[in-house]
Design a protein around this nucleic acid. Structure first.
Length: 547
RNA sequence: GGUCCGUUGGUGAAGGGGCUUAACACGCUGCCCUCUCAAGGCAGUAUUCACGGGUUCGAAACCCGUACGGACUACCA
C-alpha cells in the first residue's frame, strides 16, 4: 500500500535512498575538525547578520582544520532576486570570508544550490512515504486558514496535527481520485510526536534547552515539489556531512521539527550552535536587525562608508567572542587568525550592533597600520568611490605618506582617522591645490582671531628647515620672547599683563596660517613636510585673504 | 495567546554560589604631560547586578513568582 502510494506520487523517482547516500561518503577529516556551512538565500543583498554568521562558520571550521562550505538556499522561488547570488559572492570576497567548497567553487558534495537538488529531496520524501512516515495532503489554502483561525480563537497550537490532519489516512483510492482531478498537494510527515513530552537541545552556545516535542505534520515538500527549509536542512546537512549547524537563534523553536526529521530518516543529527541575533536600537527599543527595514545594514553600506574589511572583521570577532577585544588590545601584533574562538564565549542574549564601537575599532585598526599601507588602502577606496581625489592622491603621494607618518610611532599612534573617507578632509591642507583653491574655505574662522601678520612674515623668514625638533622649538621660544611673548605658558599665566601672549599663541598663529585650522598634528612636522618656501607662500596667501 | 531566550553604571558588556570593595572597552569629569588636537599617564564615575519572595553560614550568580524586552508560532528562510 505505501509502496504503491509512493510510486503513484513519485513515478519519476527511480533512485533509492541508499543509492543517493552512497554518493555522499563520509569526509576524511581529523578528529575534532568541524564542518560548517553558510546557507544564505539569494533574496537580495547580504546583510550584516548574514556576514556575522558566515564569519563564525569560517572561523570555527578553519581553526579546527575543518571545512566550511557555501550552500545557496533558494527554495523560495517567490522571493528570489536577480543577481543576488553574485552580490553574496562579492560581499564574502570583499570581507575575506574564505570558504572551502560550495557555490562558486568546486566540491564533492554538490550541487550546492538547493534548487538543483530537487531530485535528491524527492528521493528521500518518496522513501518516507514508502515507509509510512509521510503522506500527501490535499488541503486547500482556505481550509488551512480556517483551521488556523479557529485554533487561534481557541488558543490551541496552530498547525496541522492530530484530528486536523484529515488527509493523514487517505485511502489509495482517495489519493488517486485527487490526482485524477489534478488537485494540488504537499507532502507532510506523520508526526509521531507527543505534546506532553519534552526534548533537550544541547546547544553549544546557550546550553541545554528544554523544548516540547513536535506534533505538527510539517510540510516537507511544497506543492511545486520543492522542499521546505526544514526538510532541505536535514537532507543537505546529513548528506554534506555537516558536523556543526551554526545559525541564528530564531531557529531554536523549530529544532524539535528538525530533530524529528533526522529521527524519521534514521540519521544522526549534527551539533547545533544558535547564536544571538544582531539587534539594533531604534527609538530606545531593541529589535532584531531586519533586511527589509534596515537597508543600512547591507554589507555594501560598510564598503561605501569606507570601513575597511579588516576592521569590520575585528568588530565581528568582538561580537563573536566576548573576550576577543581584550585579547586583541593586549596582543597588538596578532590577528584574528591567532585567536581561538569558542562557542562558550559567544553571547547568549541579543547582540547590539553599535556603530560607535565599530568606529572606535576602525580608529584603532588604522592607528596600527603603516603609513604606506594606509595610503594604499585609502587610494584603493577612492579609486572606486572618488576617482578625482584618487588622482590627486597619486600626485601628492610623498606628502600624504609623510603626513600619515606624523606621530605614527609604535607607542602612541594618532587615532584621528576612522574611515577611508577621512583622509581627504583630515589632510586637505597638505594638498596645495585644495589649500590655495578657496581662501574662504581654507580660513573659516580667520576674522575672529587677532593674528599678527607682520610677525608671521618675520617668522617665516627666520624658520630653518634643517632644525631638529628641539632646535626648532628652542627657536620658536626665543622668537616669542624677542617679540614680547612669553616663552613659557606658565610664565604668561603668572603675569599675563607683562606679555602680548605666550609661545602657544605664536604656534597657533603659525598653525592657522599654515593649515587654516587650530587643531592639527604636530606643527614642527607639518612645517618640515611643507618646507620653507611653501610656508612663505602660505603667509602671503594669508595676508592677501586678510586684506 | 503559546513556546523558548534575555534583563548587570551614561554605553557595549565580563562574571554563572565565597577569588568581586563587579573585569575590560567606549564615553564623561578632574589632574598631569603639553605649541593645539590626537595619543599617553593618574584619579573619579554601579556600596550593587529589573522587582518581590525563597534556598544558603554566604547570592549578581541557584529556585519560584511578577514586570519589561526579544525571537519563534507559513506550502519564508
Amino acid at each position: 500500500m505505501n509502496h504503491e502510494l509512493a510510486e503513484l506520487l513519485f513515478p519519476n523517482i527511480k533512485k533509492t535512498r541508499e543509492e543517493v547516500e552512497a554518493k555522499f561518503p563520509d569526509r576524511n577529516l581529523k578528529e575534532g575538525a568541524m564542518v560548517t556551512r553558510f546557507g544564505p538565500s539569494p533574496t537580495g543583498f547580504l546583510h550584516i547578520g548574514n556576514l556575522y554568521g558566515a564569519f563564525i562558520d569560517s572561523v570555527m571550521a578553519h581553526q579546527t582544520g575543518g571545512v566550511m562550505y557555501l550552500r545557496l538556499e533558494d527554495t523560495d522561488s517567490k522571493r528570489q532576486v536577480e543577481g543576488a547570488s553574485d552580490l553574496i559572492l562579492n560581499s564574502l570576497k570583499h570581507f575575506h570570508i574564505a570558504y572551502d567548497e560550495g557555490y562558486g567553487k568546486e566540491g564533492f558534495y554538490g550541487p550546492y544550490v538547493q534548487s538543483e537538488r530537487k531530485e535528491i529531496y524527492q528521493v528521500f520524501a518518496k522513501a518516507l512515504v514508502e515507509e509510512g512516515k509521510a503522506y500527501p495532503c490535499f488541503m486547500k489554502e482556505e481550509e488551512l486558514q480556517e483551521i488556523r483561525e479557529g485554533q487561534e480563537l481557541r488558543k490551541e497550537i496552530t498547525g496541522i496535527y492530530k484530528h486536523y490532519a484529515v488527509d493523514r489516512d487517505l485511502s489509495l483510492e482517495e489519493v488517486k481520485e485527487h490526482l485524477e482531478k489534478k488537485d494540488e498537494y504537499v507532502i507532510r510527515i506523520k508526526s509521531p510526536g507527543d505534546m506532553d513530552k519534552q526534548i533537550i537541545l544541547h546547544d553549544l552556545i546557550k546550553g541545554d534547552i528544554l523544548l516540547p516535542e513536535n506534533i505538527i505534520d510539517e510540510v516537507i515538500l511544497k506543492k511545486d515539489g520543492i522542499p521546505t527549509y526544514h526538510f532541505a536542512h536535514v537532507v543537505d546537512d546529513h548528506l554534506m556531512k555537516t558536523t556543526h549547524v551554526i545559525r541564528g537563534d530564531e531557529w531554536v523553536s523549530s529544532y524539535p521539527k528538525h530533530l524529528q526529521l533526522f529521527q524519521l530518516l534514521g540519521w544522526k543529527s549534527p551539533k547545533y550552535a544558535h547564536h544571538a541575533a544582531l539587534t539594533k536600537k531604534e527609538d530606545g527599543k531593541v529589535r532584531k536587525l531586519s533586511k527589509r527595514k534596515d537597508p543600512e545594514f547591507s554589507v555594501s553600506y560598510y564598503q561605501e562608508a569606507g570601513i575597511p574589511a579588516e576592521a569590520l572583521r575585528l568588530y565581528l570577532a568582538t561580537l563573536t567572542n566576548t573576550n576577543f577585544e581584550e585579547w586583541y588590545l593586549q596582543n597588538k601584533d596578532k590577528t584574528i587568525a591567532d585567536f581561538t574562538f569558542s562557542y562558550k564565549k559567544m553571547p547568549v542574549g541579543g547582540t547590539l550592533f553599535d556603530m560607535e564601537k565599530l568606529n572606535n575599532i576602525c580608529r584603532t585598526y588604522f592607528s596600527r597600520l603603516k603609513a604606506e599601507k594606509l595610503y594604499e588602502d585609502v587610494l584603493l577606496y577612492n579609486e572606486e568611490y572618488d576617482k578625482e581625489y584618487a588622482g590627486i592622491m597619486k600626485k601628492n603621494k610623498e606628502r600624504l605618506v609623510s603626513f600619515l607618518n606624523i606621530e605614527r610611532d609604535a607607542k602612541r599612534p594618532r587615532k584621528d582617522i576612522a574611515t577611508l573617507k577621512d583622509l581627504k578632509e583630515e589632510s586637505s591642507y597638505m594638498i596645495d591645490e585644495f589649500f590655495f583653491q578657496n581662501a574662504e574655505n581654507t580660513y573659516k574662522i580667520a576674522e575672529e582671531k587677532n593674528y599678527d601678520i607682520e610677525l608671521l612674515k618675520k617668522y617665516s623668514e627666520e624658520f630653518s628647515e634643517s632644525d631638529s625638533y628641539e632646535e626648532w622649538y628652542e627657536r620658536v621660544k626665543r622668537f616669542a620672547q624677542d617679540n614680547g611673548y612669553a616663552s613659557e605658558v606658565k610664565m604668561y599665566k603668572e603675569n599675563p599683563e607683562n606679555y602680548k601672549g605666550h609661545v602657544g599663541d605664536i604656534c597657533e598663529m603659525i598653525r592657522f596660517c599654515l593649515t587654516g585650522r587650530t587643531k592639527t598634528p604636530d606643527l614642527y612636522q607639518i612645517l618640515s613636510i611643507l618646507g620653507k618656501e611653501n610656508f612663505k607662500k602660505r603667509v602671503i596667501f594669508f595676508e592677501n585673504v586678510r586684506l
